[in-house]
Design a protein around this nucleic acid. Structure first.
Lengths: 231, 231
DNA sequence: CGCGGAGTTGAACTGCGTCAAGTCCGGTGG
DNA sequence: CCACCGGACTTGACGCAGTTCAACTCCGCG
């Protein structure tokens, strides 16, 4: 529960997160209500069914939002990247688990305080609304990726999305990056098995489209072919 | 482009739609900016790439939000039920097609006027935010349904969702209703083929869980078994 | 009456899941 | 330092659920 005070001045997401919509004075006021928390890889922020009394913006690292199908299989519904926001603002209980994929730093608020702030500062509420809309589009993009596409297309599409997220700029993929997801996580996102993901990776490697570098590193050798495979 | 004036007093969704958050005077003011439009089955409200200068709440009928994979296959990303809201508030272009599944009545606004109104009336902006959050949850629920579940579970889950939507109350399914979706639409939502959907329907019927009544009618004989099949 | 679109059904094919080894790697302890 | 272990990942063989392809039925409509 490491609760330090907030240092907004050198926050890496200070002008992309929801709070970037605030004036410096307003932000200071909000910061007084929040605190920093660090999550180790695999640690869960909150679980489905918990009181939804927390919310947070992600400062660094990566989170997953997961559900479980009756037989215990994990389904990943969304990834959260830095500057992303998590927490239920309108429902009494959390609907899904939120778990750190890598060591992560969060800017944590009590939900009631955050709601009060977004009522007081309309620009904050608007920024959150915009963010919810983006989450919706990402969710639909994932839906599109997972529905009725071959295993190769799904894996290629996910790698492309991760490469785009890894390079700061959203439209050209990073040439080299570390996968934040285990094979099991990828399988859970794509609705495949671990084995299928692994096979598709080796297949993409045999075609010289990507190259694995250790368990988690990845080189994108042919971005165009990767995009084509994702079609 | 049938543009009548708005008659909010006897609007069937007057206390469930976003505008229900407004006071009567505020609503009158908003209504002055909007107009009613009727869409025939199959007619499209706007298409991906269009300027996003329109938004609307659905008064009656049903819409689908669709994308197309390269080879022309249709993927349905979401359904819109009465009181639902469509339109991009934060992006310059529409991302997806929006098409009427059945004859539908919409309450139509220009986007700029609607944005102005939601800036002027914070409760309207908040109601839209809440609605976006609900859409997000629905999208994730669909993601969960479509990922790694058997064809039977997907069809059963969709029928259950449609039955719940058809009964006004969201938690007990209607015993009899008309499917707003064609087989092709269902297949497009679930990531299956038309043939698979058809087979699963006959299978559910053989198990006496549902009963088809003409091309579109459906009786839910055993809600509990249907829910079990959707697990 | 004949046409066309939507739906159903059947038979054969195939991509992915399942199961079962096997490999790689980091950590722990002798 | 090496030996051993366990977890994450890879690879192979096989079976099956769902796709594909191809009739065929049903029904509304000109």
């Amino acid at each position: 529960m490491g609760g330090e005070a907030l240092g907004c001045r050198d926050c890496p997401v200070r002008d992309r997160a929801a709070c970037a919509a605030l004036s410096p004075e307003e932000r200071d006021e909000l910061a007084a209500a929040g605190r920093i928390r660090t999550l180790a890889r695999g640690e869960t922020l909150f679980a489905a069914g918990d009181d939804a009394d927390l919310c947070a913006t992600l400062v660094s690292g990566a989170l997953k939002i997961t559900a479980f199908d009756q037989d215990g299989g994990e389904r990943i519904l969304a990834l959260v990247h830095p500057a992303g926001f998590v927490g239920e603002l309108f429902t009494p209980f959390a609907r899904h688990d939120v778990v750190a994929l890598t060591e992560s730093r969060l800017c944590l608020f009590s939900r009631s305080e955050f709601e009060a702030a977004s009522a007081r500062f309309p620009s904050l509420g608007l920024a959150l609304h915009r963010r919810a809309q983006e989450d919706l589009h990402e969710s639909r993009a994932l839906l599109d990726l997972v529905g009725r596409r071959s295993a190769e297309a799904r894996v290629a599409g996910l790698l492309l999305a991760l490469a785009n997220a890894a390079s700061g700029s959203p439209c050209h993929p990073a040439r080299h990056f570390e996968l934040p997801l285990s094979r099991g996580d990828m399988a859970g996102m794509l609705g495949l098995t671990i084995e299928s993901v692994s096979r598709q990776l080796t297949s993409l490697e045999r075609k010289s489209i990507v190259k694995r570098d250790g368990a988690r590193g990845l080189d994108v050798l042919e971005p165009a072919l990767l995009a084509a495979a994702a079609a």
